[in-house]
Computed example of a mutant assay.
Amino acid sequence: MNSWRQRFSLIIAVLSVLILSACSGNTTASSGAAPAGKTHLSIMVGGLNKQIYLPNMLTKQLGYFDQEGLSVTLIDEASGQSSENQVLAGQVDAGSGSYNHTIDLQAAGKQMQCVVQLDIAPGEAEMVSAKETGQIQSVKDLKGKNLGVTELGSGTHVLSMALLNKVGIPQDQAHFVPVGAGDTFIASMQQGRIDAGMTTEPTISRLLTSGVGKVLVDLRTPVTTQAALGGPYPFICVFMNNTYIAAHKDVVQKLVNAYVKTLQWMHSHTADQIADKMPADYYAGNKTLYVTALKNQLSIFSPDGKMPEGGPESVLKIEQQTTQSVQGKTINLTKTYTNEFVDKAN
């Protein structure tokens, strides 16, 4: 009997060890631990399937994160503004969103810095509902209209206010409606919830092809952006908390190296070749349209990841005109971006 009890106790002990090991393994997997020898980073992106954010997924698809010894998790979020909040809260290591957020944050006493610039122009367009084209033929006609933006406080919201400001329309004389992008933006225009709105590719091309909307102001190239806004407007970047950057320069350098490789790769390949590397569900059921949309705005992607000269000053000027929290504040632009890592990567 004692022998049987000893064997039974041994079996129970072994089972307990196996169960504890399994539980431990599940905890590790859910926490996003990196494979042996790799540093794990989580990056929240303000809309992975929007083409303006394309370099994020493309870097992963090309294997450049892996080459730098990084295990990167890309987290999809509605807008860049949501990304900045998660970075500040320490929930993610980096965010990908509009550069202007770093200026807004400094005005609020918080510090975040762009470490690599992905887009040197917005890659957006102010679209007008086909139902409203008879009434809306210029930006001046947007007064009193319902204008769609990704999210209140987002980059699309600021750009919309900048266009209104340029023609002398106070921002409180338009109604901004948060409608997201893609299907939700298109549905809002079809249903008459919005008369016009700022959105990205491939939503722009989907609206044009379906006849639901038309372009009022095109910000899909650096040249048209300069004409519409009166200066350059660097847009999507990768930003990180300044304290994290100072404490993890080696990791930041590896991250920037990966992104710079991607940007260089993009400028030596065609839109078709770039599209081939992207997940099929990004095409929204029409790869040809996706490629056409990409061709329309390839020039917005930075060739080297550097902040363009004069870009920060131009963005700050628009922020001071459109964003109340920035008005009257002294902003140190050198703390909102850095070319330190990009210079080494190039």
Rank of each mutant, 00 (worst) to 15 (best):
L163C: 07
L163D: 11
V167K: 04
I169H: 00
P170K: 07
Q171W: 00
D172I: 00
Q173D: 07
A174C: 03
P178A: 11
P178K: 09
G180K: 06
A181I: 10
G182E: 06
G182F: 13
G182Q: 08
D183F: 13
D183C: 07
F185H: 06
I186S: 12
A187W: 06
M189H: 03
Q191L: 15
R193I: 09
I194T: 06
D195F: 03
A196C: 06
A196H: 03
G197A: 08
M198T: 10
M198I: 12
T199Y: 04
T200V: 14
E201C: 05
L207S: 04
L207Y: 00
T209Q: 15
S210A: 14
G211Y: 07
V212E: 14
V212F: 13
V212N: 06
G213A: 15
G213T: 07
K214S: 13
K214G: 06
V215Y: 05
V215L: 09
L216N: 01
D218H: 05
D218Q: 04
L219H: 09
R220C: 12
T221W: 11
P222T: 12
V223H: 09
V223N: 06
V223D: 13
T224P: 01
T225R: 11
Q226G: 02
Q226W: 12
Q226T: 08
A228P: 01
L229N: 08
L229S: 09
